[in-house]
Each structure stands twice: as C-alpha cells, then as structure tokens.
Design a binder for these strands. Sequence first.
DNA 1: CTATTTATGTCAACTTATTTACGTATATTG
DNA 2: CAATATACGTAAATAAGTTGACATAAATAG
Lengths: 164, 164
Amino acid sequence: MKQDVDPSDPLGLSLANRMAFRLYQCANMLNKTGTKALERHEVTTQQWAILGALVRDRWVGGIAVRDLAALLMVSRQNLTGVLSRLEARGLVERTVDANDNRSRLIKLTPAGWQRWSDMQADIAAYYADAMRDLSNNDMIHMLHYMDRLRQNLRAVDDAQGGED
Amino acid sequence: MKQDVDPSDPLGLSLANRMAFRLYQCANMLNKTGTKALERHEVTTQQWAILGALVRDRWVGGIAVRDLAALLMVSRQNLTGVLSRLEARGLVERTVDANDNRSRLIKLTPAGWQRWSDMQADIAAYYADAMRDLSNNDMIHMLHYMDRLRQNLRAVDDAQGGED
DNA sequence: CTATTTATGTCAACTTATTTACGTATATTG
DNA sequence: CAATATACGTAAATAAGTTGACATAAATAG
C-alpha cells in the first residue's frame, strides 16, 4: 500500500532526508572515483556519459544539443561547455543540422570511437568494484526505485517551470 | 546469491551503467528542484545538507571542517567555499578550536537555527512531491542498496589514495 | 631537545551545474 | 505576407565539486 511522504510523519520525512543525503554522497563519490578510474583516458564521468550516449545506434547519425541535454537531464548551457571541451580534444564534432540552421548535430569522431573502445576494460573493472556485492537482481530493484524517483523529480521540475 | 559485476557479463555491465547514469540524473535533478523549492530561503541543497548536519545534537557544540567534510564526503577545499558563503550570510560561524589552533569549529548561528526552522514546511512539501508513490518500505529498501553502494565507493576511493 | 613528518584550513585552477540573457533562425498567428 | 512568438546554441555570472599546493600548527621520531 503505497503512501506519499506525509509531512506529519517523522519517519517518512527522516527516510526521505536520508535518501536525498545518500544520493548526494553516492553521486559525488561516483563522480570522484569514476573519473579517477578513467584517469588515463582523460575522460570525466560526465564526458563518459556523453560518449556512452553517442555510441548508441540511434544517435550515430548525430543528436541535437537540445535532445542530448534532455537525455542527460542537464541544461543546454552546461552541455555546451562539456561538448566544447570534448570537441577541443577531438572526440566529438559539431555539424550544422541541414534541416535547421540553428541546430548542431553532435557526433563522435573516429578518435572518439577509439577512445570509447579503449575505455571499456577500465569501465568494466571500475563497475566490478563499485557494484561489489550488488547482484543483478539488486540492481534491477534499485533501478526500479530510481526510475520512480527520476519521474517524480521530472514532474516537480515541470511544475517549477521546467527549462528556460 | 550475490555476485559481483562480472566484466564478461553484458547484463551486469549494462545494469551497472544504467545505475550510474540514473544516479547522475537523479542527483542533478534533486539539486535543481530542491534548490528551487527552497528558493525563498536562499539556501541551496548543499547548504541545506550542512545546516541539517549542524542542527544535530552531537554537533551543536561545533564540528571541525575535516569531520564535516568526512560526513558529507566532499573535499575540505570545497567545504571551505560552501561554509564561507554560509558564514557571509550569517548562518554559520567559525570559531578557533581551543584544543588545536589550526582547527575551526563550525556552528549554526541563531539566524542559522531560525533559518533551519523556517525551512521545515517547504522541506516537507518538497519531499512529499519528490518521494511520491515511494512508500516508507520502498525507501528503506533503497537506502539499503545505496548504503551498499556508498561503502563500495568509499572502498574504491581509499584504494585510489583517498583524500590528499 | 631538535629534526622530520603529518595534519589543519584555505588558496588557486579547472570542470560541472544552474540561471539569466541574447543573436539568430524558425514557427505561428492574423 | 508581416508581425509576433518560440526555439536553438552559446555567453556570462554564480555555486559546487575535484586536484595540487601551501603556511602554520601539532605529532612523531631519534
């Protein structure tokens, strides 16, 4: 029987607070340790997430900044900065979208593809450590909860005015 | 039967990747929406976490920067910046630790206590939305997994050289 | 006791995240 | 068709996160 967090329920409030705090800690640590684990590739976790998106079949032909920002759930402005650094290092290219002069299609360069390939062994090793003692089933459960949370936060965001 | 992520197991790898990505998205969105929800109090989520730590009984007498950084799992350098902004706004004070001249004890000011009190209604309302459809039991399960993850990441961090 | 090592909080540089703003292009309206 | 509204990617400012570095204080070793 699912209930919303009841503002008058101290336990629910405490659990929500602990969850938010744990999320904060884990996200920061994932960023710190992940970036360190991939250090020899000179790719931060955020850049890694972008590379990971771009290798997907559906976006091999390129993806617009706006769409990539929506996928990552970050602002276009922030993405501009991250992409610029990736572009400066030759891992992604920006091409004008033939159908919309304002839009830029983001694609991996051959060097980007190679970098992604080079990273795989270290990625796997890192995840083995980061997810130690969490079974596939555990992760599936966790993903289920986090999906719920993500949907909630998206709804809150929309209610707050969304982007721009 | 718990198994580590097997580097040769595509499902495990995929799940781990999705988890990391979901964590990234949720943490960013939690920060964005939480900061917006508390906007009228002019307190970011990170500052909120610090205030939340300082109101606890065990730290009413003050906590050293190093200890607070360890609790939050952020670097001392970063914490210095956040604390400086909080101090500039009169919500925390730094006092020299009588037992160690190098150390600063961080405490809430009376204005900080008042701010914390003022925030409570908006915090509860925000959590009600953010945790919608997640029962107390769901959250307890999720905390269990995230604790496991946090411990893993701390171990990885230590193995990578830890702080400094 | 002195010399050396370690610890404390902060500074500087860089990356990432948000918001506000804007020039330019595209879509919509009348 | 022209006027208006909206969309696109990027610039600027601010907050938060990391690493490397450092002046000063405290702990440790000989």
